[in-house]
Nucleic acid binder design. Sequence first.
RNA 1: GCCCGUGUGGUGGAAUGGUAGACACUACAGACUUAAAAUCUGUUGUCGGUAACGACGUGGGGGUUCAAGUCCCUCCACGGGCACCA
Length: 866
Amino acid sequence: MKTSANYNFQATEKKWQQVWRQSVCANKPVAAAAKEKCYVLEMFMYPSGRVHIGHVRNFMIGDVIARFKKAKGFDVLHPVGWDAFGLPAENAALANAVHPKDWTYENISLMRKQLELFGFSYDWDREFATCDENYYAVQQKIFLDMYKKGLVYRKESMVNWDPVDNCVLANEQVIDGRGWRSGAIVESRQLSQWFFKITAYANELLKSLKSLEGWPEKVRAMQERWIGHSRGLMLRFEAKDKDGQSLQDLSVYSTRPETIFGASFLAISAQHPLAQKLAKTSSAIAEFINSCSKNSVTTEDMDKMEKLGIDTGVQAFCSLLGDRALPVYIANFVLQTYGTGAIFGTPAHDTRDWDFAKKYGLPIKLVIKPSAGNDVNLQAGSYLGNGTMIDSEFLNGKTAPEAKECIIEHCEKTGVGKASEFYRLRDWGISRQRYWGCPIPMIHCQKCGVVPANEKDLPIALPVDVTFNQPGNPLDRHPTWSKTKCPSCGAPAHRETDTMDTFVDSSWYFIRFCQDGASDLGKFDRKQIERWLPVDFYIGGIEHAILHLLYARFFTKALRDCGYINLNEPFSALFTQGMVCHKTFKHKDGRWLAPDEIESKKGEAICKADGTVVDVGRSEKMSKSKKNVVSPDEMVRIYGADSVRMFVLSDSPVDKDMEWSDEGITGCWRFINRFWRLVVMFGEKYSQTKKASPSFIQLDCLKHETKADFKRVLRSISQIGGLYEVFQFNRAIAAVHDAVNVMYDLLNHVESYSDAFRDLLLLTNVVMAPITPHLSEEVNQKLGNPKMLSETCWPDFGRYELKQEMVTIAVQVNGKLRATLEALPDAMQSELEHAARNINAVKKYIPAGGAKKVIFVPGKIINFVV
RNA sequence: GCCCGUGUGGUGGAAUGGUAGACACUACAGACUUAAAAUCUGUUGUCGGUAACGACGUGGGGGUUCAAGUCCCUCCACGGGCACCA
């Protein structure tokens, strides 16, 4: 498809990839303590079998930063690895009769080859997979240490059970009531599970979010919400039956205790102990509770769900309210899992309570009066704003926030209540009933109970001889694997057959990368780890905003407290990139068509097979089901790695979604050839005219208009470093385009300035190199630079005088542009004003009396106000 | 419902409060070619005008300012996240 007259990317890319691999210093951080370190990391990949173009975009961001920082003189760590445990390996085992281990390592080697095509500057010597025995051995050791520290426990609990994957899911892995991977409706089951006590860090995880200034505001907000801190009052009520007999105490938590005097009912959840008790004697209550448990948990249903309740006949008393009793309802909108599973309802100041009161005819009493002029219509809805307390006894006259503090204090003093805090965050359940994961190093002994495995027995390795021909966990039915001796009493015992959630594996992999191959990987090498951490640039998708990033933060803090490392936060800067999208094509018969089944004719998309016109849909995230995917290998084969590398960063800012298009990728391919041609054309001229010429550094020797062009190119490329720093690769590429366009013009009168032009090409090439390293290395060689590009420093543009000699001044009248003026940058107002007044286009707008006022911004603008 | 984004030509997108539309794509024209492709050179926000030029123009409305895509208020549309969290 592409002719040989062009830049030969096939040969060139292969050649330099080989050279880089052999060169000692190209991809590896040099042990240079004097240099400042820079740890660049992209979220590692699950070895599904194929590298997706979205991965390429992710890795490209990291690669540009890594190469750029290296050129800037940093000691750079840029590793790569594999998040290799997980369910798909078992599914593949089931479907294709291959062992998960073979499937995984096979995929890794396929994907490694794909990655190699792109020339990423990875330190391949540090590569590992989380299913490597020497990786998960350390993970088991960490688990035991966390157990000793009280950060791991086992409890019977209701869990999210995915009936398709036959597996437990963490709360974070349930999305809209469905399993995050299988999409099946999640069921509740009672099981014994291992938990990490992430809630012990709820406060710290929340507080230190503030210190993460290099994180997107959005991700911090999502985590903050997920941890969900609230502060309020725990208030004690007494529940009495209709005969006035005391039933039990009822604790009610509220974040708005100041509204208590407006309360008109109490509501408890269907799972509340009192509800369960009452159900035994009332069939109506039992029936209601039963109907609540049937409620679906999907988003749409929740939206539509009506607030329902049943009056239990129970009365609740609180000394704050004197003799006034509140009726106790069981309500479907009260959650047992938050607070105490009981609330007091203040219909005037809460939307849900208002809905409920309307439905059941309960009083709606205003206790917060809005400031003057704002009328409240309690018949239309609740009032959620601020104001002054009324009808609230000792709170009257205070503002709502003041009243909140006041009532908390009052209740603490009188003992009727207590200031309380709650978090939404739950402990992290990590038990998975799967084979392909890190075994939990615990042992069940009939006599001693659950005991940790001996450290000297680590790793507890996965057995290889397992079968996948029936549902459930293969470790459970392995004839011998789980049989062992109790480390404590020596009696026969059996191993825990659950394995760890794979999110555990990815919670500390960035720490392992810090150790080089020569170190003892069985232990934490603090010196190496603390040299590199924290990660300076962490790059990945927004979909990990909560799960992975929260777990990794938790692990870092837990490892700190177990004495492994001295670090509070693992990632100083986080960058979330957008997705790669593509148009979709739908055949008239309803089939989705792949991009390579389409050709475009006269602006219409035509199906190659039968010539029919195809419906072109909007650009969407690439997905196999809609066939709107492109293969990275195929793209490299047709256009070369540098074209693909350039395109994924080209048009859109990298934090936004981009659209993959044929026009876009061919555009990049054309640019690469265009730059190459520029170098070739220059080379031909240069060899003919080689003679004494000024070095371009002495810009004064150049002709005026040539000098201006030189300066313009220099200005364009000099900004590129700054643009890399702030991840504005699309603008960096625009600057490169601009520079190359100017150089094409320059080439026409370059004869007498050839050395200077050569320098200009070399400089441009250096700043392009992080994006198009193969092309740049080749150009560098062709221009006769003896030093390899990967060893070349970033140019110091400070040594060039880049100021423009003439600037264009905008001449405005009343802020409207009427003309422009060429002037020296430091021209005085008086002379410019005089010149501007004499321009006809300006003169006609200025009245005879002259301008009222003249605004002058040196070097930029002169504005006549008339 | 709440929170966070986003809104600029035919398209992707640029613009420290200071010449809106950089750069790229598409389209069109010219050069080269027997021809096509590729390449090179132009043009390409809209309306009016042969032109010079003029008017309009950054989702809508209002405001601050000599000057607003940019700041403030308000409304609309789209996208994402959370969702009965007491």
